[in-house]
Design a protein around this nucleic acid. Sequence first.
RNA 1: GGUGCCAUAGCUCAGUUGGAUAGAGCAACGGAUUUCUAAUCCGUUGGUCGGGGGUUCGAGUCCCUCUGGCACUACCA
Length: 649
Amino acid sequence: MLLVDLVRERFAAALNQMGLDGTSLSQRVTAVRDTQFGDYQANLAMSLTKQLGIQDPMQIAQDIVQRVDLSGLCEPAEIAPRGFINLKLKNSTISKALNEVAQSNRLAVHPVAKPRTYVVDYSSPNVAKPMHVGHIRSTVIGDAIAKILKFLGHKVITDNHLGDWGTQFGMIIYGYKHFLDPAAFAADPVPELSRLYRVVHQLIDWQSTEKELPKTKLAVEKAEEKLAKVQAEFGAVAATDKKAKRSIEDAQKELKNHQEKLKKLEDTTEARKQQPDLSSACDKHPDLETRVLQETAKLHAGDAENKALWDQFLPLCLESIHHIYDRLDIQFDMELGESYFHNRLGPLVQRLLDNGMAKISEGAVCVFLNGFEVPMLIRKQDGAYLYATTDLATIEYRVETFKPDAILYVVDHRQGDHFSKLFATAKQIGYDQLELNHVSFGTVLGKDGKPYKTRSGSVVGLEPLLDEAIERAFQVVESLPIPTEEKREVAQTVGLGAIKYADLVHNRTSDYVFDLEKMVRLDGHTSAYIQYSYARTCSILRNAGISMSEPIAPEVDFVLDHSAERTLALMLLKFEEVLLHVTNDYMPNLLADYLYDVSKSYSSFFEQCPVIKAETEALKQSRLALCQLTGRTIKQGLELLGINVVDRM
RNA sequence: GGUGCCAUAGCUCAGUUGGAUAGAGCAACGGAUUUCUAAUCCGUUGGUCGGGGGUUCGAGUCCCUCUGGCACUACCA
C-alpha cells in the first residue's frame, strides 16, 4: 500500500466521524509541494468552511487534527496559517517501508488489483520509406508505456501496425519499373528502393509545383487587389476604427501567405533546374501521381506482377527496419501491418452497409456521425478502401482476438481529427465499452522551431543520429581505464539512452526541439547523469563487497538523521506512486523526471554521507542499503523507459 | 471560414484532482577536490506565468475575451 494512502486512511476515519465523506475528502492529503512544510499536507480545512458553517479554517483544522489518529505513522500534525495541516512521517515508518522495498524483487510495487488488457499500437512506420527522427517519439513513448503497464500487472499486447500496403508501395513499384538501377539493386536492394521512393516523390512534388504555380500567382494578384481595395475603403479610418484596421491586417496577412507559398514554389522550380536528368524524367512521366495510384490499385486488386514485386520488396524493407529496432532494443509482440487486414475490408464494409450503419453517398460508402460535419469515408467512389477502413478492421480483429479493455494509439497529434472520427465510428458501430485512446505527441522540431529537417529540406535519417550519439559518448568514455570492448558497450548504452531519454523527459503533448548536442552532453538533465548515479551506487557496493540484487540483511534499521538520507529515502518510496501516476494519463515523462530526482537526491547524499567510512557499523549498513535501493530503483526505472545501465562509466 | 493545441527565466523545458514564497537544466558568476567515480556537489543572479476580465478562501492550472503561433479541415496515409 502506498504511504500516502496509509495517511489518507487515518484522515478518512476522522472525517467520517465528523459526518463528512472521508474517502473522497482524504484524497486531499498529498505530498507537500515545498519540503519545508514536512512530508504531506492536508488541504481540507479551508474548503470546508461553508459545508460546516464554520468561518475560521483554523478551527476546522484543529477539529480534524484532534480527531485524526496518526500514532505509529506520523509525528504530531501541525497547523499552519490559512488552515493547512502539515504532516511529517516518523522515521520508523520510513524505515519499515524501505525494508519492504528491500525484501521485494519488484521494489514493493504491487500488481494492480484490477488488471486490464491493453493493446498498444506504436511505432507503425511506413516500411518503404526510410525511417527518420520523427519515428523515435512513437517508438520510444509507446515502448515505455507498454513496459510500465506490464510491470504494474496489466496484460499488454504491443503491435507495430506497419504501413505496408499503401501508396508508398505504388511509388516504389512504379520507380522499380521505370527508374531502377539494376546494379545498385543487386548490390544492396534497400538503399536502392529508398532512392526510388525519393525519386518518385520528388517528381510528384515537381508536378504539383507546376500545377500550383499559376494558381498561386493568380492568388497573389487577387490578394494584392483585395489589399488595395480594402486600403482604399478603410485606409482613412484605420487609425481609429479597430474593425477597419483588422480588415487591412487580414488582407496583408493573406497576401503574405500567398507570396510565401509562391516563393517556395519558385524555389522548388529553381532547384529542379539543377537536376536536368530528373527534370526530363519528370516531363516523360506526366501525371505521375495518378500512375502511382494505379500501381497501388493494381496491387490491391491482386495484379500478379505487382504482388510479386511487393512479395519481393516487403521482406527486404522489414529486414531494414528490424535492424533499426535491434539497435534501439525494441521488440513487439506482433507486427500486423495494414496488408494483414486487407481481406477483412470488403466484408466489413458490406456488413456495415447491410446493417444500415453505413450509407452510400456520392458513390462512396460513408458512416455518418453525430457531432461531426463530415462523415467517415470507408470506401472511395472508385471502390478502393481507406486508412480508416483498415483501422476499423484492425479494431475488429483486436477485439475478436484479445478482448482488450483498451487500445492505445501512440501517434502524433496531427492525426487527432482522424482518431476522434475513428473512435466515434467505432463506438457507433458497437464498440462502446472499449477505451480507445489516442496517446498523441507533439512534433520534433529543429532549432529553427520548424519540423526537424536537414538544411536541404529532407528529413533526417534515424541511423546517422544513433551513430553520432554513440560516437560522442565514446569520445567521453575514451579516457576511462577500462577495456576498449567495455568502452564500446558503455558508449552504446549512454548514447542510445541519451536519445531515448531526451524524448521521454518532455511532456509528450508538447512539441520539442531536437538538439543532439544537448542530449549527449552528459551533464545536466540527461540520462547519462542518471546512469552515472547508478554506476556510483555500483561502485560503492563493489568496494563493500555487496551484490546489487541480494538484500544486505533480513532487516535493516535505517538511520535517517541526516536530511540527505531522509530525502533520498522518501524519494525511493515514491516509485510505485509515480508508476501509477504515469499510467493515469500515459505520461512517461513523470517517470523520467522522477529518476532524475532520485539521482539528484543520491548525488547530494553521496557528497554528504560517507558510506563505507560511516562512523558506526549500523550507519554503514543503513547507507549501504540506501545505495543498493537507489541502484535498484534507477535500474528498474530506466529499464521501464527502455534504457539500460552499466556498472561503471 | 470551422475545429483543436500552444504561449512559464536569456535559451530548452517541467509544473500532479486549483493550495502556502512558481521550479529544473543550460548559459553567467562565486565556492568545494589528501574523493566510497568531479560525467559531482553547494551557493548567487535571473519571472507583470502573452494582455484583460471572471469563478474561488486560494488560479500558471478552471471559464470568457483579446493578441500571437502551430496543426487539422471527407474520397492520402
